[in-house]
Nucleic acid binder design. Structure first.
Ligand code: MN
Ligand code: MN
Ligand code: MN
Ligand code: MN
Lengths: 219, 219
DNA sequence: ATTTATTTTTAGATTTGTCTAAATTTTAAT
DNA sequence: ATTAAAATTTAGACAAATCTAAAAATAAAT
């Protein structure tokens, strides 16, 4: 089967929303994809026809195994291209998302297998998100945020909670990226802000909101 | 302005046909793009609205300067991606055309400039076709075919007349590619076939039809 | 338990890109 | 100069993907 760019974007969005909430609703999708609810309903019916999801009117949708497989193959392409753009073409990590959003729809499977090999079979994209292998398997992503880390603990940054360029720019400016090692010095009860120390740098302050979107692994 | 994949494919096809025949007709385009003449007429009117070409009903079309500029930007992308696929991803030269046909529609100009730099600013694609620079300039391509070469002359292969995989496979099998040095030993008056010698290989015979599609430069 | 608000779906319209069948124009042949 | 053939355009239809406005279903509030 071959699917359109629009269909693939819907499947990917449903997959993403399904991660936090099993049942995905029309309005959630409408917000995620910047389309009107009426258009979403239309598309859901078509995708249901194509057996990519189960559609129960008024109750929302769930991907079928086939739908999940398709979602993972698109995510795989998206993340491999992002890795390529950053590692080979020297793009900044906050500039690659939109380009990968187009590249992910190029259809050749052979292209992706060779790209994967060329890149050395990377395990994660520039934002720390795991890259599914050709069978759709991927390492489960860390869900410990800096907000949840205990005071005094040392950790390494493994990912970010969202892809917005405002977040990525802020992190770049503070010299925080994937792999950055840090130590949580203090957490203020008043506003949830945290003081962290990076190697060879003075202590800096991060807001609670920012701490929430930074994913870490203790070391 | 941003154009659809369909529009870009029309503009590219018109550019190609315009190389051998100034005025491009509906039927020529219909054959080139595998669409019905009625569909072509429709699209030509739209492209004319968008000032990409001059459309005279029943007489055919010619690209405007704007249309030519667009055509060259798509050709630039197509050929850079082909070069990438062969040089970096180790694709065979007869397998890259269809993939580049999709990649050429990815819209980011930044992507193409960085890809160009990453590839080392190549001058020609894997089939010997010149790659336009970011301003649309490119070196004029050799138009001397093996059929026109005089007996006894030494030459180097600079390109091929068409991109069909049947041609490319045949050339691969006979160890002929871009840059191959050869000497024209004999031409048979009966059928126009030629005998050529490649370095360290026995003399081989090529049909007139094949000799016609192999472009060379004397050395 | 009604009423009100929110969510979702339906109905009808629009744009893009394609098709078939019929009409028109241009070109070629008698 | 007519007539026949070929090329091109027009007319009308369709699928995909979107929209707005209205109707229907579900959820929340009184
Ligand atoms: Mn996308
Ligand atoms: Mn990413
Ligand atoms: Mn194309
Ligand atoms: Mn080529």
């Amino acid at each position: 089967m071959n699917f359109s760019t629009a269909e693939e974007n819907y499947i990917k969005a449903i997959w993403r929303l399904q991660q936090s909430d099993e049942n995905v609703t029309t309005n959630e999708l409408s917000a995620e994809l910047q389309t009107k609810p009426a258009s979403v309903t239309d598309m859901l019916k078509r995708l249901s026809e194509k057996k990519l999801l189960h559609y129960a009117p008024y109750y929302g949708v769930k991907l079928t195994p086939e739908g999940k497989k398709l979602a993972l193959s698109i995510i795989r392409k998206h993340r491999l291209w992002e890795y390529f753009l950053v590692e080979k073409l020297q793009f900044n990590w906050d500039a690659v998302h939109d380009i990968a959003e187009e590249l992910e729809h190029v259809s050749s499977p052979e292209l992706i297998e060779r790209l994967d090999a060329f890149l050395g079979y990377p395990k994660a994209d520039p934002h720390g998100d795991p890259i599914p292998d050709s069978k759709g398997r991927m390492t489960i992503t860390s869900n410990l945020s800096l907000q949840q880390l205990e005071v005094g603990a040392a950790a390494v940054v493994t990912g970010v909670g969202d892809q917005s360029s405002s977040l990525l720019e802020l992190l770049s400016q503070k010299n925080i990226g994937i792999g950055t090692k840090l130590e949580l010095k203090q957490r203020h009860a008043f506003d949830g802000s945290v003081e962290i120390k990076l190697r060879n740098q003075p202590i800096i302050t991060l807001s609670e909101q920012l701490a929430k979107t930074i994913l870490v692994k203790t070391v």
